[in-house]
């Protein structure tokens, strides 16, 4: 499991690397990614990479609320689903321009996140999981019941694609979509890293690590939780909209347990509270899942076994795995059990 991103891009202690170094590493990593379409020319491989970018956006934004915020938001995939359906409905029934609809989907997901934050403001741990999980199921049921617009269990088909001038988006071997997805991942990553390194980010982390102390130092739980959830929602919604425009259909599957499990395992396998870890794990897991495409129905079974295996063996996720193999290979003398 070698990583497509240079290991230097993963700070061992987030926030401590100077921002110049980090910015340089990010730029280099994205420049390398931007060159990929010239190496990877078949549209199927490009499709896999585009999916990896979408998942990376969703997973890294989840890391903001789950890892940094310590808020067990299990409705994160619902925010993605809201983006998917918002884009589909806005372009299909309101006739809104696809690009504008994509931004609007992000805003709608943000509003939804604020709405779901209200009941969980006073809650802790397991109760947050239950309520946000219930929220996701509720959104799904509402979409299912409004089948006149959403197509119910059939889903929505022939959703409008994105456009760039007169460029043919469908017959360019996914060239344009690759760069839109990459740009989205870039903006999202810069936004997330800038946020967690900022004063607001420090407040979010302080609240997670020592709630009482943080509150006594003037950090507001209510404001911080709303900010965390809302910030994690925008690009998630945008990614949903992009996904809808790219796939040209919307299905209720985005609310299913299996997608949530996979994305959540990206966050946890990557190691929480790094942003980069989730992105890296998204690449690894998406490519890994595609490599198993021939296995058909066995794929989800093997993925599930893999997730369980890694969680049992490497409690800190892939970050811990990389760390320990790094130590194993390069610092043999440094054997601390």
């Amino acid at each position: 499991m070698t990583a497509p991103i240079p290991v230097s891009a993963i700070p061992s202690s987030p926030g401590r690397a100077s921002w110049r170094k980090e910015a340089a590493a990010v730029l280099v990593a994205f420049a390398v990614l931007a060159l990929l379409p010239f190496v990877v020319t078949d549209s199927y491989s490009r499709h896999v990479l585009i999916m990896a970018f979408i998942y990376a956006v969703v997973a890294s934004n989840w890391d903001l609320s789950l890892g940094y915020g310590g808020v067990f938001n299990f409705g994160h995939l619902a925010l993605f689903g809201i983006g998917v359906y918002a884009y589909g409905l806005l372009t299909k029934f309101a006739g809104i321009d696809p690009w504008f609809a994509m931004a609007l989907s992000g805003v709608i997901a943000t509003i939804a996140a604020i709405v779901v934050t209200i009941p969980i403001l006073r809650l802790k741990g397991i109760y947050i999981i239950l309520v946000t999980f219930g929220f996701a199921q509720l959104v799904m049921q509402v979409i299912l019941s409004q089948s006149d617009y959403t197509g119910g269990t059939q889903g929505m088909v022939r959703i409008q694609t994105l456009y760039i001038g007169e460029h043919n988006m469908i017959r360019d071997g996914k060239f344009a979509y690759f760069y839109i997805a990459l740009a989205m991942l870039f903006l999202s990553t810069v936004f997330l890293r800038a946020l967690v390194r900022s004063r607001i980010g420090a407040g979010i982390i302080a609240l997670r690590d020592n709630e009482e102390y943080a509150v006594s130092r003037g950090v507001s739980i209510v404001r911080q939780r709303i900010v965390t959830l809302a910030a994690s929602a925008f690009f998630t919604g945008v990614a949903g909209a992009f996904y809808a425009g790219y796939q040209r259909n919307a299905s209720i599957d985005v609310f299913g347990m299996s997608l949530a499990t996979i994305i959540l395992s990206m966050v946890l396998l990557g190691g929480t509270s790094t942003i980069y870890g989730a992105i890296l794990a998204s690449f690894v897991l998406t490519i890994f899942a595609e490599a198993m495409a021939d296995l058909g129905a066995w794929r989800p079974i093997i993925t599930a076994l893999l997730i369980i295996g890694v969680m049992l063996v490497y409690p800190t996720g892939l970050a811990g795995f990389i760390q320990s193999s790094w130590n194993g290979v390069f610092r043999r003398d440094n054997k601390v059990a």
């Binding site: 789950l66 067990f72 299990f74 999981i129 347990m257 299996s258 949530a260 499990t261 959540l264 395992s265 946890l268 989800p300 079974i301 993925t303 599930a304 076994l305 997730i307 369980i308 969680m311 049992l312 409690p315």
Partner: peptide, 13 residues
């Protein structure tokens, strides 16, 4: 959190 993941994965399995 970890048990949520492992049980979700087991459920999918």
């Amino acid at each position: 959190l970890v048990v949520v993941i492992t049980t979700l994965a087991a459920a999918s399995l």
